[in-house]
């Protein structure tokens, strides 16, 4: 899901930087209006938690292991606006320290995983769980939130890849991501629909189940009724 450097043309990554900056500014303003002076330490903690959640490898049925992106879970736990900053900061640290995701692609990566997943997952969760506060429906909503959020972000990423040959080619030669929409979309969609989405949904549901049992009051998406 992390787009590396070299795959996106400037006419794609520059608008995504601008788009992401807009969401970031809106998120900071929104959280500052609620938390006031606590904003900075709170978001620092949220970002660290968002980063560390990816460190938890979990056994997955089929004798393999996986970890979640965690953006949907963070949005359900902390709210979508906090998740915008928390996930984005985690992605920026990943890019700057570990080289996961490109520097030019930070705007696109933060938009795909830091903006799209939190909002899609959060509202999917709220919509599917409805008025229910416990039980299987809430767990199913958590699974669906993780699954849908990741798949929507993967589709968006595939479109970003797929438009590159259309907008940045020279004499038939692709200059950036070489596969058009007809290859990029099915390739990304299939692997996320059949594998990564299920892992994301499973991890989101398993962790949220524990939060529901131990401290449901700490779940943002359960508070706003």
């Amino acid at each position: 899901m992390h787009i590396p450097d070299g795959y996106l043309s400037p006419q794609t990554y520059i608008p995504f930087y601008a788009l992401f900056a807009g969401f970031l500014a809106a998120a900071l303003k929104k959280i500052r209006s609620v938390l006031s002076a606590q904003t900075i330490p709170y978001l620092g903690m949220a970002s660290a938690f968002s980063f560390l959640i990816m460190m938890f490898n979990v056994p997955i049925p089929g004798a393999t292991t996986g970890h979640a992106v965690g953006a949907g879970l963070i949005a359900i736990l902390l709210g979508p606006w906090s998740a915008v900053i928390a996930v984005s900061v985690a992605l920026i640290i990943q890019a700057l320290i570990f080289g996961d995701g490109g520097i030019t692609a930070i705007g696109a990566n933060c938009f795909n995983m830091g903006v799209v997943i939190p909002f899609v997952s959060y509202w999917s969760f709220r919509f599917i769980k409805g008025k229910t506060r416990e039980g299987r429906r809430v767990i199913a909503a958590a699974f669906a939130a993780g699954y849908i959020g990741l798949n929507v972000a993967a589709l968006l990423t595939a479109v970003e890849f797929g438009i590159q040959p259309l907008i940045a080619s020279e004499a038939g030669r692709p200059l950036y991501a070489p596969y058009g929409l007809s290859v990029a979309v099915p390739a990304m969609a299939l692997e996320h629909l059949l594998l990564f989405g299920i892992i994301e949904g499973l991890v989101t549901a398993v962790i949220l189940k524990f939060f529901l049992i131990s401290d449901p009051a700490s779940i943002h998406a359960m508070k706003e009724e």
């Binding site: 970031l24 900071l28 904003t39 900075i40 330490p41 978001l43 620092g44 903690m45 970002s47 660290a48 938690f49 980063f51 560390l52 460190m55 900053i85 900061v89 985690a90 920026i92 640290i93």
Partner: peptide
């Protein structure tokens, strides 16, 4: 404020790791 959030997060990450 954004720079401070990143720096704080970076410190938290090592403590919580």
């Amino acid at each position: 404020s954004f720079i401070m959030i990143v720096l704080l997060s970076y410190k938290y990450i090592f403590i919580l790791s």
